[in-house]
Simulated assay, not measured.
Amino acid sequence: MAKKAVALKSQLVHIKALGAGNSALSKAQREFNRLTKRIAQAEKDVTAYRAAATLMRQRVQNEYRPLQARHNAARADLVRQLDHAHDHYKLTKGERHKIVDMIGSACYDLLERGHPELQPIMDKHAPPLTAQEEAEADREISEAMKALFSERFGIDFDPAVDVSTQAKFQAYVAQQMAQQQDRQAQEEAQATERRAKRKKSPKQQAAEDQKQAEEKNITKSVRALYMDLVKALHPDREPDEAEKLRKTELLKQVTTAYQANELLTLLRLQLELQRIDQSHLENLAEDQLRYYNKLLKEQARELDEALYQEQMDWSGFTGKPYFFTSTPAAMEYDYQSQFQLINLKIRSLEAEVLAFGHDPAALKMFLKTYRIPKPGVGPLFG
């Protein structure tokens, strides 16, 4: 949906009932009021969410990223302390095995998070794989990826094709996906051609003619509003320089709204500029209201999609499902929870490093509670 260049006033576009309650309004008038109210709320929701997401990104950068760096620094200190304890404390074979697992599994990501100096420690406790082990690991990964792409995308892997490396695998998948897309495009083109050749029944033809006529009338209705506003706002006829600039900006907004089929925006401007009044809305013909309501439904749908896209963008930023942070309030709650959690982790890690460095018994007590994850569970992040 097109973004507006200039903020509008909160102009109410609403058909008032002449009698008591909504019963005095026709069905189309009630639908018009419902849609304009829904659009007004959706516009507020999109604007509020977009502003909250922008502010939250700034807070993450300025407040949370430094905490992440401090958290990783505390984890790096823990690795150094565990390495020292492994070599110098009197520990059992099982306790040393747990330390090796913690360093290799729970903290391997630190090398890519600003602590490459830990590489010698990692190599000491988790020596590089042999050529045979690497080949076996590559084979297992390749088989797992084959199964995944076969299930999700229906790709058949030819046993004779070499997909042993990541580059070869990606090239083969890309080729198969391209062939699938070509086949689908051909099938769609053939189906479209068959539908075009198929003779329509009188009922189908009448429905299609009616649809085309309605679309034509909708286009005329929006264009009529647009042309009326263009005449009223044409800056070349304005002698006052300040007023000329104002009208120029408003005209840009009118053009943007017209190109996006934003009927409600055009009606708001007409009311704001006194091109129409309340009686004009109340006396709209039923046919005209029907055309307006179709456009308003489309505008409401586009706003819903715009809000969903904002939520998905934030979901991509956080890595959480969009429904976890579907409102600015939920976004703030999630941020505060993460902020408190990482502070708690930092304090706990710093206390552990201090305790383990002065009291081997504290480390032994900690190792008693540590359980080595079973194969397949995945990495344990400290």
Rank of each mutant, 00 (worst) to 15 (best):
V6P: 01
S10D: 14
V13A: 02
K16C: 10
L18Y: 13
A24T: 12
A28W: 04
R30Q: 03
R34W: 01
T36R: 02
T47W: 05
R50K: 14
R50H: 08
A52T: 03
A52H: 11
L55V: 06
Q58F: 11
R59D: 06
Y64H: 08
R65T: 07
R65K: 15
L67P: 00
N72S: 12
D83S: 11
K90W: 08
L91Y: 08
H97F: 04
K98D: 01
K98S: 02
V100E: 15
G104W: 06
S105D: 15
C107W: 06
E112W: 13
P116S: 10
P116M: 10
L118C: 04
P120L: 05
T130D: 06
A137M: 13
D138V: 00
E143S: 09
A144I: 08
M145D: 14
G154D: 10
I155G: 03
D158C: 03
P159K: 11
P159R: 11
V163W: 04
Q166S: 10
Q166A: 13
Q170T: 05
A171I: 04
Y172Q: 03
Y172I: 02
A174Y: 02
Q175G: 04
Q180S: 02
Q180K: 12
Q180C: 02
E188I: 11
T192V: 08
T192S: 09
E193F: 04
K197E: 12
K197V: 00
D209Q: 12
A213K: 13
E214L: 12
E214I: 08
K216I: 01
I218D: 00
V222N: 05
R223W: 11
L225G: 07
Y226H: 15
K231Y: 09
A232F: 09
P235R: 01
E238Q: 15
P239E: 03
E243C: 00
E243T: 03
K244H: 08
T248Y: 13
L250Y: 08
L250E: 12
L251G: 04
K252N: 07
Q253S: 11
Y258H: 15
Q259K: 14
Q259L: 07
A260G: 05
E262F: 01
L266T: 03
L267H: 01
L271I: 02
E272N: 06
Q274V: 10
R275M: 09
I276H: 02
I276V: 14
A285S: 10
D287H: 11
L289H: 05
R290H: 15
Y292V: 01
K297Q: 15
L303W: 02
D304A: 15
A306V: 02
Q309R: 14
M312W: 15
M312F: 14
F317M: 08
G319D: 11
Y322C: 09
F324S: 06
F324R: 14
T327M: 04
A330S: 08
D334V: 05
D334S: 12
Q340H: 12
L341F: 11
L341P: 01
I346V: 13
I346Y: 08
R347L: 06
L349N: 12
V353D: 02
A355I: 04
P360N: 04
M365L: 07
M365T: 09
F366V: 00
P375M: 06
G382M: 15
